[in-house]
Simulated assay, not measured.
Amino acid sequence: MELFKIFGLFVATALAEIVGCYLPYLWLKHDRSAWLLLPAAASLALFVWLLTLHPHAAGRVYAAYGGVYIGVALVWLWVVDAVRPTWTDALGTSVCLLGAGIIVLGAKSA
């Protein structure tokens, strides 16, 4: 069960980071309102706070988080940008998530 909580926390952290970066992108590249920078800053602050909730040492968390981030980013690509990921995207994400799982589970056994 704890593994599911950690994974959910990784997903929430990734979404906060992606939203925090996506909103300034809309402002800079798509002529959207500069007011988007306010929720972007709030989202990035949430991202930083969520990082502090992870149960392991920072370096290990960042390494495992990277694998989950890749998966969430590709889901974002599909859902928000309407670009369907390729089979190589799915394969690469699977490899990254496997690596993230090894890092998280290995930390528990060490």
Score class of each variant (00 low, 15 high):
1 M>L: 08
2 E>Q: 10
3 L>I: 15
3 L>T: 14
4 F>Y: 09
5 K>R: 13
6 I>P: 06
8 G>L: 13
9 L>S: 13
9 L>D: 10
10 F>E: 10
14 A>M: 10
14 A>S: 15
15 L>S: 05
16 A>K: 00
20 G>T: 01
21 C>D: 09
22 Y>L: 08
23 L>C: 04
24 P>G: 04
26 L>S: 02
27 W>K: 05
29 K>R: 08
31 D>S: 12
32 R>S: 10
33 S>Y: 03
34 A>W: 10
34 A>T: 04
37 L>C: 12
43 S>R: 00
46 L>P: 05
46 L>R: 05
48 V>N: 12
50 L>K: 04
51 L>G: 13
51 L>N: 15
60 R>H: 12
62 Y>P: 06
67 G>E: 01
69 Y>M: 07
71 G>H: 06
71 G>V: 11
79 V>F: 01
80 V>G: 04
80 V>H: 00
81 D>R: 05
81 D>K: 10
82 A>L: 15
83 V>T: 10
84 R>F: 13
85 P>V: 02
86 T>A: 12
86 T>S: 15
88 T>Y: 12
89 D>V: 04
94 S>G: 15
95 V>S: 05
95 V>L: 15
95 V>D: 09
97 L>I: 08
99 G>I: 11
101 G>E: 08
102 I>C: 11
103 I>C: 03
104 V>P: 04
107 A>P: 04
107 A>E: 13
108 K>Q: 15
110 A>L: 07
